[in-house]
Write a protein that binds this DNA or RNA. Structure first.
Lengths: 133, 133
DNA sequence: TTAATATATGAGTATAATCGAATATATGCA
DNA sequence: TGCATATATTCGATTATACTCATATATTAA
């Protein structure tokens, strides 16, 4: 339990989990949605995975992360608490909004590879200006 | 939510909360039950109090700490998760056992003041030897 | 096989958390 | 008032955590 709380006591990891709670993403997508560096994203994902909160599935050179069904099943009250916390916080709502914009667009991992800035700017624009404003 | 997780991501604070979840104790009692220093106990209690998980009530020179009813009411799923975690862990079970031994004894805060070692040794003995063994 | 790419990991640094020891504050009592 | 006591806080040292930049690993595709 302590390790779980430690893993959840970090803003970036909570932001990641907020997305993965509902969707399955690869690392490069999380980089763009949350605007964090590749190594940072990878490291936080590793931490969440190490304590069993999320799982990874490899798809070629891409790695998709998702909420662990086993964990969610075994820890329903915690998931419920997280959901309530996510819903009452602007940061998490904004991140989710950014992801939905991306998901509903024509862009994908390949687009991000080709022109990461393009995708980032598209999301920024559609989500109503620069992030964190 | 982040602050809550940070507050819960520490073994000593979880051990404190494990006791306060069911009982109301003053600082000197927590020192003896958990075998932590006075300044450490006070510090951790302050942290739990600052994020609203516990409350304090002053009784003369003593300060009693208890789980915040408001917090528990507003965060039932979290409390449920904690309870499950506490019950499946030997450390927390042992701490609770130590408190019950103390509570059912003739000792109290005054006894602890007069001879802290006596109370500690009584609990150690009754709980089946030295703590953490 | 070689080049390109997605992700993971290592090294170094900055920041934050924890702890023990000492001190400050506040209350109770003689 | 002056002393003893319960708790809170400060200081300094140590350890842990998070971040950036650089590099390693593994996979794809030419």
């Amino acid at each position: 339990m302590i390790e779980i709380f430690k893993a959840l006591g970090d803003e970036n990891r909570l932001r990641i989990l907020n997305i993965l709670k509902n969707y399955e993403l690869c690392v490069c997508e999380l980089e763009v949605i949350l605007e964090i560096s590749q190594s940072n994203a990878s490291r936080h994902l590793a931490k969440l995975k190490n304590v069993g909160i999320i799982t990874a599935s490899k798809d070629g050179q891409w790695v998709h992360y998702q909420l662990s069904k086993k964990f969610a099943e075994k820890n329903k009250p915690l998931l419920e608490y997280l959901e309530a916390g996510f819903q009452s916080n602007e940061i998490f709502e904004n991140d989710l909004n950014r992801y939905v914009i991306y998901k509903d667009s024509e862009y994908n991992c390949q687009t991000i590879t080709n022109d990461k800035d393009l995708v980032t700017k598209y999301i920024d624009l559609k989500s109503g200006g620069i992030d964190n404003e």
